[in-house]
Design a protein around this nucleic acid. Sequence first.
DNA 1: CGCGCCTGGAGAGCGTCACGTTCACCCTCG
DNA 2: CGAGGGTGAACGTGACGCTCTCCAGGCGCG
Lengths: 299, 299
Amino acid sequence: MTLSRRGSYAAAAAICLARAYESGRPKKLREVSAEMAIPRTFASQILGDLVHAGIAVSAFGRDGGHRLARPPEQVSVAEVIEAAEGPLASGRCALRDGPCRWQEVCPLHETMTTATASLREVLAATSLAMLAARDAAIAGGTYPVPADSHRQAADVADSVQVELPLAAIAARLSAATAWLTAVAQACDQGEQQADGLPKTVAVHLSQAVEADGTQQAPLVWEAVGPGGVYPRFQGELQLSALDPERSELRVRGSYRPAPGTHHRPPGEAQRRRAAHAVLRDLLRRIAAGLEHEHAPAAR
Amino acid sequence: MTLSRRGSYAAAAAICLARAYESGRPKKLREVSAEMAIPRTFASQILGDLVHAGIAVSAFGRDGGHRLARPPEQVSVAEVIEAAEGPLASGRCALRDGPCRWQEVCPLHETMTTATASLREVLAATSLAMLAARDAAIAGGTYPVPADSHRQAADVADSVQVELPLAAIAARLSAATAWLTAVAQACDQGEQQADGLPKTVAVHLSQAVEADGTQQAPLVWEAVGPGGVYPRFQGELQLSALDPERSELRVRGSYRPAPGTHHRPPGEAQRRRAAHAVLRDLLRRIAAGLEHEHAPAAR
DNA sequence: CGCGCCTGGAGAGCGTCACGTTCACCCTCG
DNA sequence: CGAGGGTGAACGTGACGCTCTCCAGGCGCG
Ligand code: FES
Ligand code: FES
């Protein structure tokens, strides 16, 4: 699920309109374009989409411009994105050609419908007002994550050895987002005995680049919960060969423990120890998973 | 979230391999291509993606072919789709250019991360084994939906008048998936006092086509729950002008009540009555929503 | 032991279409 | 009537879907 340029511009423009809604005056096209870094002529198109969808209204003339048709609390992100990118639930079958007909559904239908519905449920639960509030919080430096990330974050590094040739690991990791997510989620649950907040774990492992024998890829591992974004780890994962049959997996970066486990902010040393423990756990799980998975293939 | 051709082929090929996994023998490229209607040379690329991702293994020679690397129970749909289409969680910022950096997150980040994570959670919860089972059930005619749809479905039609010009309604409906979903969900909750099963509601409203003054669009409204797919309504929504200021909204199609509300399958007359009641509810909610929303804009 | 057949693998190449962008036109009010 | 401002159509580009061609690994047969 990656937003096209059109969709991201629409979101930006909508935020811009939401900010100006209180004033009651329409926002001019060029203002939106300038504030949000959208090409002028393209911005007109984007705002046109919003108008067509009934999200915004436009006016000609000297005091013309665009304005939200409803208060920002009543406009969901899903609406905005759909206005620009077309319906999220396309109604087209994912497996065959043509529309979904329930007389002859494909095996993917149930999963796909649930997946898209669950996607748009999240998007529909966020209003433009929340977005604008977050935007203001970020600008003012009071958004939860960046404020805490300096205070509580701890730089850590750790490594683990894997009894597999480098090529096998690299191949596995290059398309292992699904599996990494599961591993990270397991770590997450192991760590937070104290807080039972429901969280959604997401892992981004970018494409690896090779530098003198060492594969290196940026890794972001984060959890999102009701209280906001809790970034957990950002850094890089390095992979190098020890000998033809063994490799070393090294992780280095910044880790921030989950809030809620300690009532008082722990001391520096304690944080480092906690961060190290979780990171070690993550690495060991990855190594175990790799070796376990390749065992049957190597028989 | 619409699957590209590459992704749908990958899913089809994976199902095909899953079917053949029990036999223990590799499936030849041409067999996969023929059974799943994938162009031969392109199928090679698709299967290559699966091999690279560690989902399948390939063998040369007389008894060569492709085979799943793991039992189908351990392969998730998310893996398959990501193998073909690249990571679902791109790690790129939805609002600006470049990757997501937590030092300076955009206001959309939290929502987007949750949305993509929630999407892939659903996709990761479905295994190839389930897909293959569903495929077999569909082929054998024992898949829940098609089997029941003939027995319990009731053809119904209803209409409602809206105090708005046709153009206004058409414009609103053309990009109203988000809002329609909410309306349908409200109907759903109103109906099922008896069963508290968690369901995900999805509404597909396709593009309207005009035929002598009447806009007409296929409409599918369905709910997905733990027991499988429960299609609820499939038919079409018609929109015609009564006079310049009033329009008629007409729905006609086939409706199937939610299972669980009645312990015994109700009689034909009773089903028709129930279907009619729900449909009327849906139409009235739509009309109310339309008039309410356009009231402030028309002041 | 080596040749030939049967299998998949890799890359270049090409047509198509949607997306991003730009331009010229039209509307409203002072 | 002209300056400000929004609207729609036209255009170029790049990514995707697909095909073609040549290459490489395994197995059996002579
Ligand atoms: S029938 Fe295939 S996705 Fe709906
Ligand atoms: S920072 Fe914008 S989506 Fe992550």
